[in-house]
């Protein structure tokens, strides 16, 4: 076992890096998409609302794996060739973005309407109201569900293994198949995912506590 791990360690390190890269970049882009789409969905432009509604519905209503496959294997047929890593990041970001759109929309609408009244009555523009008053309070409301989303996304990165990206799951499989030590390798990979997600959960808790102390 020790020997196996020693041999697999360099591969696992690279794989860990790849998994975190996929997870974090998809999350960051997904948050951007979700925030923008949430604001659009609450705007007074009907067409925009409809388009965003359709996006959310499609990406929440189909499997992530299918979305990954579609971007990597499907798009080249339309002449769009994307390397595996960006393809996965695109698919995961869009997927997470759809869920986060709904999360942020809920967070924004949960802020008391009196807050908008107060900001308006000072003469703030719509965007000042949003940045200075609504968003900081919405962020606090959405930390738990967004943390959930991040954790879930971290594990979805394992789907990248089906489009040749060498991340944790793929490395476990490669080492497993060459040594016939599948059990050990998948358990190790599982443990690494678990540690990453535990760290994220702790981070979420710290953030919640810090934001909570301010408002309570």
């Amino acid at each position: 076992m020790i020997d196996l791990l020693r041999r697999a360690a360099p591969l696992l390190w690279d794989a860990l890096y790849m998994t975190v890269l996929l997870g974090v970049s998809s999350f960051v882009i997904g948050v951007g998409i979700g925030l923008g789409a949430a604001v659009g969905r609450l705007s007074r432009f009907r067409t925009l609302r409809t388009v965003i509604g359709l996006y959310v519905s499609l990406f929440r209503g189909t499997p992530v794996l299918l979305q990954v496959l579609l971007v990597y294997y499907g798009l080249p047929q339309l002449g769009v060739e994307i390397a595996p890593v960006p393809a996965v990041i695109i698919a995961l970001s869009l997927h997470a973005g759809a869920y986060l759109t709904e999360t942020f929309r809920a967070g924004i609408t949960a802020v008391d309407t009196g807050q908008r009244d107060a900001a308006h009555s000072m003469g703030m523009t719509g965007s000042q109201q949003f940045r200075r008053v609504i968003l900081p309070q919405a962020v606090r409301i959405v930390v738990p569900p967004v943390g959930n989303q991040f954790i879930s996304l971290m594990k979805d990165t394992s789907l990248a293994s089906v489009v040749t990206v060498v991340e944790l799951t793929r490395v476990a499989e490669i080492v497993g198949s060459s040594t016939f030590r599948y059990l050990e390798m998948f358990v190790v990979a599982g443990l690494i995912y678990w540690i990453i997600c535990t760290l994220l959960a702790v981070g979420q808790e710290v953030l919640e506590r810090r934001l909570g102390r301010v408002n309570a």
Binding site: G114, A118, Q137, R140, N215
Partner: peptide, 9 residues
């Protein structure tokens, strides 16, 4: 305002 509407953050 009746409900103050102070910014809690």
């Amino acid at each position: 305002f009746q409900q103050y509407n102070l910014f809690p953050h």
